[in-house]
């Protein structure tokens, strides 16, 4: 889908070698008296080849940049592309409705599912309205309400994770951010229904895990999942935020790393150059992966689902004993 790649404004720093090629295409497109279709096609091929080359050598901190790309599909983008009959459900029935964490009922291949996820945005205005995807306690409590609703009516749950972290603020502390997340962790362990988590962008620590204890945890190729952001890690441990690239490499936050540690179960391929270059294809890949995993989980009884999830998280940890 080379057509969708002509968005050179969104190039990341490490993709800069592509800029000249995009400029050439723009110039050729301005030519009206000669047919330049073939030339443009060639250039697009070169862009794709070069992009593949760049992405084959992508570093952890570069993956972080892709994961945070402003054009990367958001939860609501994925919901509209992957599901049908979505109806958003609002509020935690306690304090308010958190726009940073959305959810609702939907159909996946005709099957009823509950879907929840962090919501970011594609513009500064959208990001501000969504608090950059950083949920407050009421967001986690809404998520729990929806998960328990699904549980009562025996509907599978899909959670899409994309957050820098749970919101750090005075009111979030007052309303019990820690309690909200902790309770979700405990309750997710008890869900009787198939539960699939997909890390679609940033898996920011407890804020990600707070809706992320699926039976299966899938991760997009260029998403990240970590206990602290590379910048936070660098400023605390190295006392120097500019050492984030080193921290990113050190903390092993890529999909490949996490698959190796057994923290995730599957890596979902992204379109060349990242999901932002082709929302449809990214959604299609996620949908295929979820469908396959869900078919397997649907064979398990509620008791097996709980036991399966329990075992998955119980065995997390690397240590010696002797």
């Amino acid at each position: 889908m080379a057509e969708k790649n002509d968005n050179n404004k969104n190039l990341l720093e490490f993709e800069k070698p592509l800029i000249e090629l995009f400029k050439k295409i723009d110039e050729l497109k301005k030519v009206t008296d000669i047919d330049m279709t073939e030339e443009i096609k060639m250039l697009n091929k070169r862009i794709e080849t070069l992009r593949r080359e760049i992405f084959s050598k992508i570093t952890p901190i570069q993956i972080v940049k892709v994961a945070r790309h402003i054009q990367r599909p958001t939860t609501l983008d994925y919901i509209s592309l992957m599901f049908t009959d979505f109806i958003e459900l609002h509020g935690d029935r306690n304090f308010s409705d958190d726009p940073a964490l959305v959810g609702g009922i939907a159909k996946l291949n005709g099957r009823s599912v509950m879907v929840i996820g962090h919501q970011k945005g594609h513009t500064t205005k959208e990001l501000l309205a969504r608090n950059f995807g950083m949920a407050n306690p009421e967001g986690y409590r809404k998520a729990l309400r929806l998960m328990l609703l699904a549980d009562r009516f025996n509907k599978p749950i899909i959670s899409l994770v994309d957050t820098p972290g749970a919101y750090a603020g005075i009111t979030a502390e007052e309303r019990g951010q820690a309690e909200a997340i902790a309770k979700n962790l405990r309750e997710m362990a008890a869900l009787n229904v198939p539960f699939i988590t997909v890390i679609t962008g940033e898996g920011g620590s407890g804020g990600a895990l707070g809706i992320g204890m699926g039976n299966k945890v899938l991760m997009l190729e260029f998403s990240v999942y970590s206990v602290i952001s590379p910048e936070g890690c660098a400023s605390i441990l190295f006392r120097d935020a500019t050492r984030a690239p080193e921290a990113a490499a050190n903390s092993k936050l890529t999909a490949n790393d996490l698959l190796e540690f057994g923290v995730i179960d599957e890596i979902i391929k992204e379109p060349v150059g990242g999901a932002h270059n082709d929302h449809d294809l990214a959604a299609k890949n996620i949908r295929a992966a979820i469908t396959k995993q869900l078919d397997e989980l649907l064979r398990l009884s509620p008791r097996e689902l709980i036991a399966n999830r329990y075992q998955k998280y119980r065995k997390m940890g690397i240590f010696t004993e002797g």
Binding site: A182, A189, S205, S251, V263, Y313, I318
Partner: peptide
């Protein structure tokens, strides 16, 4: 969480909470 153990330290939150369930 202990940052030197990366994601595995985060997973301890899930593990301990699951046993408390």
């Amino acid at each position: 969480a202990r940052m030197q153990e990366g994601i595995m330290s985060l997973m301890q939150m899930a593990k301990t909470s699951a046993t408390l369930q």
